[in-house]
Design a protein around this nucleic acid. Structure first.
Lengths: 343, 343
DNA sequence: GTAAGGTATGTTACCGCTAACAGCCAGAGT
DNA sequence: ACTCTGGCTGTTAGCGGTAACATACCTTAC
């Protein structure tokens, strides 16, 4: 593409090259390569053979421009190192596989400005649909998405107003449920450990729901600790130590994700703290990782695979002509594990 | 894009719309939006204002076709759930950020056929460069890459012949080094645990190098165990248990990655096995996760971030006109951690 | 025998944008 | 006065495909 324009032995091939090599018109070659319209078997063979021999790779840019059709679906997520999003992606790819649609991923690092850029870039490729994590976006982002004239699915969260469709869980409710379970089990001095990221709206909503339920029981958070960056497992240990040192009478630790929860669990076991007797623990996400831990951490799965699948289905469905604008709420299940004492 | 062609209130905008709204030619609008060529400040303002007011998003498909320039770099990796690749991606994005180039990710699930499809699809978008994990590809894949006329960088591994450039480590050497360290520490009954994936060539090469070094010391693997699918941490536990049961006199376990190594470590600690006295352990990758474990697993970092950066630099460099074809070998460092006894 | 209908292929006109070049005008130089 | 230069804007001709229509040929039906 950006080769010096000098002598270029094998110029980039076009339909014309294949057409000349096989003695039919470009249009017929195009038909063969796309499997569209009637072409005689003999011609088809000849064309395919010529294309193969030349090593021709069609130019989708030209094709997309001419046909006004792009088989791409933009997927905008905040991070890849979170474990959660790769799994959502898996759900999306799996479902899209048979539709001729293809996901293209963009990462925002939890930055609204970055998100705006990513969305703009993606829309400039005129995708057939967009899947965007979260409901909180800059005004410009929302406007772009709304104007794009394609199906938009916001995923992970449903506590808010989507641009078009949404698939996710209520994080507020999830936080509330966990708090209720903890209170029902008899814990009273409850602390929270989480990420500092100001733009992790879903973690924030969980905490809000959590505190709401505490308040309803006449309780408030006994302590709270935040972190950013570094090894989540290690941070989990450190935060746990910090909280237990500062507020020794804490009897429960609610973590904003399983990874730091696992760190906390390992710390407690190391220190010989009785879990869940002296201290109970809970995380969020239901990551597979936890299966290998010495004790199963209480958690709530976030329906990641499901979310990916449903979102992709909506895009694929609208791609087929259905009208959109639906909100699909999924319901996470609480997995008590071994770190909440039986109520 | 694929809306029913009926009444469409806000037809998709083009340069012409902005041009009419601002009273200048399409060409001038194009110049303003790309920041190319001279445009008077007054005109620029007017155009930008009009574009903003309309919510115009340029059509890169048309732009790319006209300019024969695509600012995309295809990145082909086997998996996203491996931890390793997201980190490589981070390195790539970071470096590409300031070059105007943008990575587009494709996942192959360790399948050569899938890889072929992904490469074909990507090339059909005429990217400015391709970064592909591994050196082992189908003949067709290699041919396509070689013919594409763009910089190609194969990453992770350098034990083989690259199509164009390569950045990575020698996995064979890495395996050998680890074996030498283990032998030097006095372990003699050494077993291996790894993934079953037939197409994880890098894990295979590590094992080959490992066995080679064992052979040189007159040793052979005391046992070996493979797994596929499931929670790596859990599998690590299970495999460790299986090996220790089958071959009780094993005194060292070499894992093909840190995650299963961590599982093995947790298992040993649970069972009260003396690590590294009775049994030594080592993994591979140097994942951040390990920092939070009760004991630091011996490992070797795979230079993931570096690999991503260097690969991106090569693409960006050639994009600027430099000629390619280099092989960059990175050298992982052995991190003995706490699971090999001091030699 | 001829109209009707299908099958296989070719022709034409774009898709939305940009490279390359052409024009126009004001101020500078001689 | 006249060319020359440089800053700004417009015109033309594609980029490599595909939609839509046209065409030629061959059946089949009446």
């Amino acid at each position: 593409m950006t080769k010096p324009p000098g002598f270029d032995p094998r110029r980039t091939l076009t339909l014309r090259d294949v057409s000349e090599a096989s003695g039919v018109s470009e249009m017929t070659v195009s038909r063969v390569l796309r499997n569209r319209g009637d072409v005689s078997d003999a011609t088809r063979e000849r064309v395919l053979e010529a294309a193969r021999a030349l090593g021709y790779v069609p130019n989708k840019i030209a094709g997309a421009l001419a046909s006004q059709r792009v088989n791409l679906v933009g997927v905008v997520i905040p991070s890849l190192s979170n474990m959660v999003f790769p799994e959502v992606l898996t759900g999306i790819s799996d479902t899209l596989e048979n539709t001729g649609l293809q996901p293209v991923v963009g990462v925002t690092n939890y930055s609204p400005e970055r998100e705006e850029t990513v969305i703009y870039e993606m829309l400039s490729w005129r995708p057939s649909g967009m899947i965007v994590a979260g409901l909180e976006h800059s005004d410009a982002s929302r406007a772009m998405l709304a104007q794009a004239g394609i199906p938009i699915v916001e995923i992970m969260d449903i506590d808010g107003t989507p641009v078009d469709s949404a698939v996710g869980i209520s994080h507020r409710r999830a936080g509330r449920q966990m708090a209720e379970a903890i209170i029902a089990a008899g814990y009273r001095r409850i602390a929270f450990c989480g990420t500092m990221m100001p733009y992790d709206h879903r973690a924030k909503k969980r905490l809000e729901g959590f505190e709401e339920a505490l308040a309803k029981a006449g309780l408030t958070l006994a302590d709270r600790e935040f972190y950013s960056g570094g090894s989540a497992l290690l941070k989990g240990r450190e935060m746990t130590e910090a909280v237990l040192q500062r507020t020794p009478d804490v009897d429960f630790l609610y973590y904003s994700n399983d990874m730091i929860g696992a760190g906390g669990l390992l710390y407690c076991l190391d220190k010989g703290i009785d879990v869940p007797g002296r201290i109970g623990l809970a995380g969020f996400n239901g990551v597979e990782l936890l299966d290998g831990l010495p004790r199963r951490l209480a958690t709530m799965d976030a329906c990641r695979l499901q979310i990916g699948r449903r979102a992709a289905e909506i895009i694929a469905g609208q791609h087929e002509g259905v009208i959109g604008g639906e909100v699909i709420e999924l319901f996470p299940t609480l997995q008590p594990g071994d770190t909440i004492r039986g109520s």
